[in-house]
């Protein structure tokens, strides 16, 4: 089983990765291997097993609601590729349908 170019391109869009044709082709090929893994696991998968998300059994890890010092503005913006005064700056936003509320 392998993936169509269109499906691979859809994934690249979902992952916000600009990929060239060569990269797309190689990844489509590798995706087939992941599918093989998945199919092999079908042999041991059992619906009655609880999925394991954490190896530790700890629950309820909290902090108290106490304000702590933040970074300075300069520190916060220190690595910004583009900024305007006290803000990070980005080019215009074209709504994609999956974003935060506009």
């Amino acid at each position: 089983m392998s993936l169509s170019r269109e499906e691979t391109a859809r994934l690249a869009d979902l992952a916000r990765l600009s990929l060239n044709d060569d990269e797309l082709a190689r990844i489509a090929h590798d995706l087939a291997e992941i599918i093989d893994y998945m199919e092999k696991l079908a042999g041991i998968d059992r619906a009655d097993v609880e999925p394991l998300s954490h190896v530790l059994n700890t629950v309820n890890v909290y902090r108290d609601d106490r304000a702590e010092p933040s970074l300075s503005q300069e520190e916060a913006l220190a690595n910004a590729p583009d900024r305007q005064g006290e803000f990070f700056r980005v080019p215009r936003i074209i709504d994609t349908g999956e974003g935060s509320e506009a």
Binding site: R16, L17, S18, P91, I94
Partner: peptide, 22 residues
């Protein structure tokens, strides 16, 4: 901005990272 992110990630990541993200 969406193109910018895709370009940033497309250029900023090597092949192995892109592969695993995909």
């Amino acid at each position: 901005v969406a193109d910018l992110m895709s370009a940033s990630r497309g250029q900023g990541f090597g092949m192995e990272v892109k592969r695993r993200i995909m």
